[in-house]
Design a protein around this nucleic acid. Structure first.
Lengths: 127, 127
DNA sequence: GCCATTTAAGTGCAATCTGCATATAGTGTC
DNA sequence: GACACTATATGCAGATTGCACTTAAATGGC
């Protein structure tokens, strides 16, 4: 499977990418190239490999995941990542955070639902 | 209300910030300082003002919102923002995207639930 | 053997984004 | 005048990102 950049469609914001990587590593250990393939199969385009590998290293540095080399298979060595306790907690919190954000968004959208907008330009042009 | 940085608690990732600003501007027009206050009241700490103002200008440049000066009130002039059609569409899509991401996260977490992990280290537990 | 391709991870560089501190400017209060 | 509050913005250093490129091990075709 080569890097073909054919489906740039739904770009995941960085925080989302982190959450998705953590989710993939729950109950499983995986390496960068494999994770990139799974993201692609899930409908996100081929994620930029430079960003992906650097994101993984950065997540390791901040303690969300840990890694070790695997030289047992044929082909180039793989850096195997697995979830740390911190990463597991982060993943759980992420769901809570998503729900909170969604609730806040809905609340924000309703704040001014039936109130006149002092700057509204569609009601009656006073200029 | 001065900038006191007393509640840094729940930092909003940049894409989330954009979505929240769009939600606040739905059915309403507002200016930067006011939006910062509403974010603070909603429980997010005092968002960094430099980032906030620059994010708003960038969102204007990309067509999500539009602005005009308001010099009718006392005090310094306010830059009033309101949602464009593009911004409105973006906001609606954001909800869909959030749900899709959540669904994908759940799917990812279940992929390997009952499968043996070839790299599992729980036999020789370290760290 | 030689060469292209696949798998796998990584780096260099420019552009962008972010946080912190600071600047600028209008108004009101003492 | 000194000070605080409102309101927007900029300078700079450090972090993040996308794009292109590099390194390296193995495979398949000739």
């Amino acid at each position: 499977m080569a890097e073909d950049n054919e489906t740039p469609s739904t770009k995941i914001p960085s925080e989302m990418l982190r959450a998705h990587l953590l989710a993939l590593l729950k109950n499983w250990s995986g390496y960068g190239y494999e994770l990139a393939n799974k993201l692609e199969e899930a409908g996100y385009g081929r994620y930029n490999s430079g960003t992906l590998y650097r994101t993984l290293r950065q997540m390791e540095k901040t303690g969300l995941i840990s890694s070790m080399w695997d030289t047992s298979t044929d082909g180039p060595a793989r850096r195997i990542y697995s979830l740390t306790n911190t990463g597991s907690l982060f993943l759980n919190n992420w769901f809570t955070l998503l729900d909170m954000h969604k609730a806040t968004l809905n609340r924000f959208m309703k704040i001014a639902e039936n109130v006149a907008d002092p700057y509204d330009k569609s009601s009656s042009d006073k200029e």
